[in-house]
């Protein structure tokens, strides 16, 4: 990547947080890539919306609770978080149930944004 070129990077998160390692891996990649000053957005769809569901308490399963880290994304200048409306609805959730401010979008709208990216990272 030549210096000064800003690309549009989208991270698509579709997995629930603790059943697999995808959510944590995605978050780490996002934080690492943030150092490169790209145009970054995060999408949460399907079970991925559970990553942002407030109130994770992971002591009992002896796994690190990485939910607080989503609140640090702002410090990394990552402010575009999109959440799928249909996924929230199907799970009985609203944006108020999430741990960070997000923009709720219809699936089709997310599809449109996806088309505009230079790079899509799928998790």
């Amino acid at each position: 990547m030549s210096e000064g070129t800003i690309k549009k990077f989208m991270y698509v998160n579709r997995k629930a947080p603790y059943g697999t390692i995808y959510a944590l891996e995605s978050l780490e990649v996002v934080l690492i890539a943030a150092a490169f000053d790209q145009d970054v957005s995060l999408v949460f769809m399907d079970d991925g919306v559970y990553q942002l569901r407030k109130g994770h308490q992971t002591k009992g399963i002896e796994v690190k609770n990485f939910q607080p880290t989503y609140r640090a994304l702002e410090d990394y200048d990552i402010t575009r978080l999109y959440v799928e409306r249909e996924a929230l609805q199907a799970r009985g959730l609203t944006a108020d149930d999430l741990c960070v401010p997000v923009e709720v979008l219809e699936r089709a709208e997310i599809g449109r944004l996806m088309e505009q990216q230079d790079v899509v990272f799928s998790f």
Binding site: L31, A34, A35, K64, N65, F66, P68, T69, R71, A72, D75, Y76
Partner: peptide
């Protein structure tokens, strides 16, 4: 303690 990560230099400097 608050965010469960050690911040990158740029972030640390700003914060």
């Amino acid at each position: 303690n608050e965010f469960q990560i050690a911040p990158a230099v740029r972030v640390l400097t700003k914060a």
